[in-house]
Design a protein around this nucleic acid. Structure first.
Lengths: 217, 217
DNA sequence: AACTAATTGATATTATTTTCACAAATTTTG
DNA sequence: CAAAATTTGTGAAAATAATATCAATTAGTT
């Protein structure tokens, strides 16, 4: 039955939103939903909803719709098939602390297991109940403790310096908040960039060019 | 000469990255660059670079390439055509403080002019040298002080409650960190979502399905 | 038990985005 | 100064993504 081609990046990026809304529906006590209802909530089209789910074999039943319970558990399995991922935080500054807090309190599926920084003044201090470690210990820690992802909240320069060692750590992905673009974006190491400045600039462009994008010649 | 069709969203989202790298080149003292060199830095193709710039009329010279100086100033004009945007921060919690700091210290083109929160315990306190105001004052402040964008760092619930009043404020855009999806995403009000949880989940999916996306039937 | 309405899964079509190909313009070289 | 080497701008082609269509399936109704 299952069609099951590889899901494209646009589809993957919609999965968390499906999960978000379906979790809400589940908590509401809704048990069944149609592609059109879901499309309405998502601001997309019924076709897209069905097409998206069919990338993974299709979770619905013709004539009936989708079971919210089933959708929820299937998408959860897609997002976190191997249980929780183990993450380490690089950079215990303002941003690092905020993101670390977020991961600890508001994220599903990811455990924060260590914090690293370059500043000798704070190494050894406790953060989130963990001792802040030196970057010197990063590679061996990751190798020994089975770390899945690195959360990079450092400066551009620090990220740049660390980059050559990242491959040695054996991690599978980087959640990157630094202004440095980790170029190793192949199958062996996936980089998810959260470039706040870029996002703000894109908003600025769109806000400034709402009407009158450019004069047609 | 200028082709000048409306720039598509993918093009707009690449603009800040161009700006980032071109600023670096400019600071390096590089004066000229070709589309292939720039493509190499950006991890894209020469064609795409040229096509992108041609959305805005094309900044290059045949046989020569692009002037780094000119590219920099032209893209800057595209991103911030009306000078700095005026922004207000909603939510003075952990995330709000971090993002506010970021805007004050690391962003180009955006000024933070006020901070709002719902918590009576902190209203009146100073943050970034500004008195934290109550949400009750939001609409009138925005109307009187010509605010361009709202930075939403509140809870989902607070964002949901505020949503109906956002149109009244007259702002042109929302930089949204809340888990609430502002649905009014039309020409009159542009929403740029920074859904950290979604981004982390997308990373989780990609990390977990690196090899073996799904078995081809 | 047959008929109607609803709804998915799958295929086809359309739209969008990226890449290719080449003429036009410029610089460099012999 | 002509020829060769670059390199952009632009229109065409290819690839990708979104939407529409419709047969197949199910639930409900009379």
């Amino acid at each position: 039955m299952s069609n099951t081609m590889k899901a494209s990046l646009p589809v993957i990026r919609r999965l968390p939103r499906y999960y978000r809304y379906i979790t809400e529906l589940k908590n509401n006590g809704t048990t069944r939903i149609s592609s059109s209802q879901l499309a309405h909530i998502m601001g997309s089209t019924p076709s897209q909803v069905r097409q998206d789910f069919n990338c993974f074999g299709g979770f619905g039943q013709q004539g009936v719709g989708y079971s919210v319970e089933l959708l929820h558990s299937e998408i959860e399995k897609l997002l976190f098939p191997e249980g929780k991922l183990r993450a380490v935080l690089l950079g215990a500054g303002n941003l690092g602390i905020t993101i670390g807090n977020f991961v600890l309190k508001e994220s599903t599926g990811v455990d924060l297991v260590a914090v690293f920084d370059s500043d000798n003044a704070i190494i050894g201090n406790k953060l989130f109940g963990m001792e802040i470690m030196s970057f010197d210990e990063l590679v061996s820690f990751c190798q020994n403790e089975h770390v899945d992802i690195i959360i990079a909240c450092t400066t551009k320069e620090t990220a740049e310096n660390l980059a050559p060692h990242i491959v040695e750590t054996g991690v599978k992905g980087i959640w990157n908040y630094s202004h440095f673009d980790f170029s190793i974006n192949d199958e062996s190491l996936i980089v998810e960039n959260v470039h706040l400045r870029d996002s703000l600039m894109a908003l600025s462009y769109r806000v400034s060019h709402k009407e009158c994008p450019h004069i047609q010649e």
